[in-house]
Amino acid sequence: MRATLIPYIPENSFPLVEYLIKKYAINLKIVNERQTKHGDFRTFANGKTQITVNNNLNKYQFLLTLVHEIAHHVTYKKFGRVQPHGKEWKTVFQHLMLPFLRPDIYPNHILPLLANHFKNPKASTDSDPKLALALKGNTAKTGKNFVFEIPEGAFFQYKKNTYKMGKRRRTRYECLNLKNKQVYLFNQNIEVSIVELT
C-alpha cells in the first residue's frame, strides 16, 4: 500500500491514510483524469463499495479528495442513504479531516483556508475559490489559464466548447457559449485555453 500511495499524498499523511483505509476496509482505485470530478464513491448491488480518485491531482488535492470520498463511505455505512453532502457527511468529513490539518502535512498558507472551509465543507473544493486556487499552487497547468485571468470579451475553450468572457458576478463569471448562445457561470479558478477567433 505504501508504494502505491506515497507518490500521491504528502508523506507524513501516510500513517493516517493507512489507518483509515484499513479501519473502514476501503476499496481504492486510482484512475485517469476525469473532467467533471476529482473522485467518487460508489455502492454496488452486491453490497461492495469503491472509491476512485484521479491520478492527475497534486498531493494536497489528492489527500483532500481521498478523505472526502472516505467520508462518503463512512457516512453510508453509518447512516445508510442520506443526502450526499448533507449534515451527516459534513460532520464525518470534519471529524476525519481534522488529524490531517497539520503543518507537516499541509503548507502553512493552505491551513487557514482549509480551517475556514471545514467550518461548513462544500460538495466540492472548487466552489471555494481561494482554497481551490491555493491547492493548485496558484498556478494553472501549462498552456492553460484560470478563468479570472481571461480579459472580458476574449475567447476561450472549455470541454470542446468555445466561450466569450463576460462580466464578473462576485466569485463567478458570465461566459457566452458561442454554439448554443447560452450564458454559463464559471468558477474563477477553472482552467481553460485561450483561443483566437479569426
Rank of each mutant, 00 (worst) to 15 (best):
H85F: 11
A140Y: 05
V67R: 07
Y60G: 00
H117G: 03
T52E: 09
P99G: 09
T36F: 13
L63D: 11
T139W: 04
A123H: 10
L133I: 00
N56T: 06
P84F: 06
P107T: 03
K144A: 03
N46H: 01
P103M: 02
F118R: 09
T49Q: 06
L131N: 05
A132N: 14
T36L: 14
Y60W: 03
L64Q: 11
A132D: 10
E152R: 10
N138I: 00
T91L: 12
N55M: 06
F79K: 15
F44M: 07
L114N: 05
L101F: 08
K122Q: 14
N46D: 15
K122M: 13
F62I: 07
A154P: 00
H38E: 13
L114K: 07
W89Y: 09
N145E: 06
L98I: 01
T91Q: 13
K159P: 03
A132H: 14
T36E: 12
Q50S: 05
E149K: 03
F156C: 11
H72D: 00
H38D: 15
G143W: 03
N58A: 04
H85S: 06
Y76V: 09
F79H: 15
K141S: 11
M97V: 05
Y76T: 07
K48H: 15
V92R: 10
K77S: 10
H68N: 06
E69L: 04
R102W: 01
T125D: 04
L101H: 05
I150T: 05
K37D: 13
V53E: 02
N108V: 09
K48F: 12
N138T: 02
K48I: 13
F155M: 05
P151E: 13
L133Y: 03
M97P: 04
P121T: 01
L113Y: 01
T142F: 04
F148N: 07
L113D: 00
H68R: 08
V147W: 03
T142W: 02
F148D: 10
F41H: 08
Y158V: 02
F148R: 06
I70N: 10
L133W: 02
K48G: 14
F79M: 10
T91F: 11
V53L: 02
Q83W: 09
T43Y: 13
P129D: 08
T125L: 02
E152P: 06
T75W: 00
A154E: 10
V82D: 04
T52G: 00
F100P: 06
E149W: 00
N46A: 02
S127N: 14
T43F: 14
N58F: 01
H109K: 13
L101N: 03
N145W: 05
A45D: 14
I51A: 02
F44I: 12
H109N: 15
F93I: 09
P121F: 04
V67H: 09
